[in-house]
């Protein structure tokens, strides 16, 4: 339950943060929530991973569907990917890993302090 809550909070605050700050705010938000919520390490990682991953997935899908995949198809060619959906996947994975690692860093720092 706390995992779900943390995931949702990371998602929400990252989404708000990105309205005002560059992309790295997702790392800051995940790190802070990793630090203040006392989750197990693995769960903290998952909260960051899914919090940012789902946020970026929703954001990318909204743009991609409205765009009828015009852009994602071209970006897939640039990144040598065989299908536009893989470009969405790369986007989401990058965000998710940043989120997961940042949240993990947060909880681990808390535990040594």
């Amino acid at each position: 339950m706390r995992l779900l809550l943390t995931t949702i909070l990371i998602l929400m605050f990252a989404a708000i943060g990105e309205q005002f700050c560059p992309w790295w705010i997702i790392a800051v938000v995940s790190f802070i929530f990793g630090f203040i919520t006392d989750l197990q390490k693995g769960r903290a990682f998952l909260a960051g991973f899914f919090g940012i991953g789902i946020f970026w997935l929703i954001a990318a899908l909204c743009r991609d569907i409205a765009n009828h995949h015009i852009l994602s198809q071209k970006m897939a060619v640039i990144f040598h990917l065989p299908h536009y959906s893989l470009f969405i996947l790369v986007t989401v994975l990058i965000g998710a890993i940043v989120g997961g690692l940042s949240a993990l860093s947060g909880i681990m720092l808390r535990k040594v302090l």
């Binding site: 989404a15 990105e18 309205q19 560059p22 992309w23 790295w24 970026w56 954001a59 990318a60 743009r63 991609d64 409205a66 765009n67 009828h68 015009i70 852009l71 994602s72 970006m75 790369v90 986007t91 990058i94 965000g95 940043v98």
Partner: peptide, 17 residues
Amino acid sequence: GPFLDPVNGCWVSAEPV
């Protein structure tokens, strides 16, 4: 990082049809 960011990055150029 900035490029793939769906809020501020290349995805902004995905203009709704």
